[in-house]
C-alpha cells in the first residue's frame, strides 16, 4: 500500500532522512519509534508530501506521489493524517470540522456529509459533542474529532503523527482505544508514537529509527523482547 524507496530529505545542511526504504502492506499497522530528532515525523510527513523529498520515491497504492505529474490533492484525499496538536478548525464546530472536506472537495450534500459525520462521531464516542466548538473540548476529545475528520474522507491509509504526545496522561487511553478499533477494522496505519504499549499490542510491525535511518525493524515481540541492535537496546532500556 505504501512503498518508500531510498528517500533522502534535508533541512538546509542537516540531513534528516538518509535513505529510507520500507513497505507497508494493506491492512498492516506499522509503528515507528525512536528518539526525538530521529526523523520519524519527517518520514511520516513525506508520505503525504507535507514535506517534499530531495531524492527517492514514494508510492501510495501504486501511484508515485513524489512525481511532479501527480495531483497531490487527489492522493491526499486517500491518506488521512492525524497531528500531534490536533489542528482542528477552531472557527467551526465539531460537525462542521468533519463535514467541511467531504462537502467542499467531494461535493457531498449537507445531508450525506452529516450522515457520515454522525456515524463517525458515534464511532469515536462523541455524538453529544456535534455542535460544540473545539475550544470547549478536552485534548482527548479533540484528537478523537481529528480522527473522525480524517476518516470522513474515507481514506485508504491513516497516518498518525504522535497522536497522544500532547495529551494529559488520563486522556491517552481514549484515543488509543479509537485507534485500536480502527486497526481491528483493517485500516492501513502508519503510527509515529512513544506509546510502546500500543506499538506492542496493536502494531503488526515496528520500525526503530535513529539519526535518519531505520536501524531495526521486526515484529513487536522481537523488537521489544529481543532487540538485536545496540542502539535499539539502549533506546528501549530508557523508555520501557
Amino acid at each position: 500500500m505504501i512503498q518508500i524507496d531510498e528517500v533522502h530529505k534535508s533541512f538546509g545542511k542537516l540531513e534528516v532522512l538518509k535513505g529510507i526504504t520500507c513497505r507497508i502492506a494493506p491492512r498492516e499497522v506499522v509503528c515507528v519509534i525512536g528518539p526525538s530528532g530521529s526523523g520519524k515525523s519527517t518520514l511520516l510527513r513525506c508520505v503525504n508530501q507535507l514535506e517534499s523529498v530531495q531524492s527517492g520515491h514514494i508510492f501510495i497504492d501504486g501511484q508515485e506521489i513524489t512525481s511532479p505529474h501527480t495531483d497531490i490533492n487527489k492522493v491526499r484525499q486517500q491518506v488521512g493524517m492525524v497531528f500531534q496538536l490536533f489542528n482542528l478548525f477552531p472557527h467551526k464546530n465539531t460537525l462542521e470540522n468533519i463535514t467541511l472536506a467531504p462537502m467542499k472537495i467531494k461535493g457531498l450534500t449537507v445531508q450525506k456529509a452529516e450522515e457520515i459525520a454522525y456515524d463517525l462521531l458515534r464511532k469515536v464516542g462523541l455524538l453529544d459533542k456535534a455542535k460544540v466548538f473545539p475550544g470547549q473540548l478536552s485534548g482527548g476529545q479533540k484528537q478523537r474529532v481529528a480522527i473522525a475528520r480524517a476518516l470522513a474522507m474515507q481514506p485508504k491509509v491513516m497516518l498518525f503523527d504522535e497522536p497522544t504526545s500532547a495529551l494529559d496522561p488520563e486522556m491517552v487511553g481514549e484515543v488509543l482505544e479509537v485507534m485500536k478499533d480502527l486497526a481491528h477494522e483493517g485500516m492501513t496505519m502508519m503510527v509515529v508514537t512513544h506509546e510502546m504499549g500500543f506499538a506492542r499490542e496493536v502494531g503488526h510491525r515496528v520500525l526503530f529509527m535513529d539519526e535518519g535511518v531505520i536501524v531495526e525493524e521486526g515484529k513487536p515481540a522481537q523488537i521489544f523482547d529481543n532487540p538485536h541492535n545496540a542502539r535499539t537496546q539502549s533506546f528501549l532500556s530508557k523508555v520501557l
Binding site: G80, L100, K104
Partner: peptide, 19 residues
C-alpha cells in the same frame, strides 16, 4: 498547522485559504 490540516484532507491552496 491549520494549512497543513486542510491540505492533508486534500484541499488545494485556494480551498484551504477560503474555508
Amino acid at each position: 498547522g491549520q494549512m497543513e490540516a486542510a491540505r492533508s484532507l486534500g484541499m488545494n491552496t485556494r480551498q484551504a485559504m477560503t474555508y
